[in-house]
Amino acid sequence: MALIMGMDIGSGTSKGVIVRNRKPIAYHLLPSGVDYRAVAQKLREELLAKAGLSIADIADTIATGHGAGNVAFSRHRVSDILCCARGITSIFPSVRTIIDVQRISTQVIRLNATGHVINFTINEKCATGSGCFLDIISHVLQIDLKDAGPLSLGSGNPVTFTTGCAVFGESEAISRVSEGASKEDILAGVHRALANKISTLVDRVGLEMDCAMSGGGGLNIGLVESVEKKLGFKLLVSEQPQFINAIGAAIMAENGVEMGGSLPEPGSTIIT
């Protein structure tokens, strides 16, 4: 099987993988910044260099994510929801429910036994339901986002956020800081608020086990534990959950070849 590059150009970070026979052989991640076209180009160059490959070694490149339409060297883009399904199924075939926590949205996806999507729901247009809320609060607390999860585990008294709005939530966090609440308690409160939102989405599509978390949210141990506590069971989380959609994009291309069609499998749109 030829090498396929999958690119997930997200609103926060851009992820690239090179896949052969459904297995990633190289990963790379860059901040997306404001120029999706430029970051896609740079991501490709650095990913190829990391893998010791050249452009000629790549049979096709498939793009997904918020900025997929800006990947000038990809002929197709695929829905991130389908990519997430394919990516997770390749790693955890037993999964029937996915919680995909991205920067600008959180989506819960139900799968059937063949790994195809049978239902999905996405949080409303509000940052409190997505990873963006963590970005905002990390900024208020002047910490690095990657430290938010471990720090929150030291909380003894999580702050209760009384709002469902990120703008008010930011104000509330500032108020709690001035009242003397610890960073640990504020972060734990944010995770709990997010877990409550996620739980509502899971209810809406209907839970079937196993359940996995993907996206950048899966890197946050505090969020994962909060969701587990809310839902009452352990989540499956891959080692690099933020790459799931990029892997899925490449797998869709491989599936298309196996089905005897042109790249990728149905469920794609042509970039014109």
Binding site: G69, V78, S79, D80, I81, L82, N112, H116, V117, I118, N119, F120, P266, G267, S268, T269
Partner: peptide, 18 residues
């Protein structure tokens, strides 16, 4: 528009299943 199309292709998979 793009977001609607992103979701529409997923609905196709759901319609095939149901």
């Amino acid at each position: 528009y793009a977001d609607t199309m992103r979701k529409a292709v997923v609905l196709e998979e759901m319609m095939d299943h149901y």
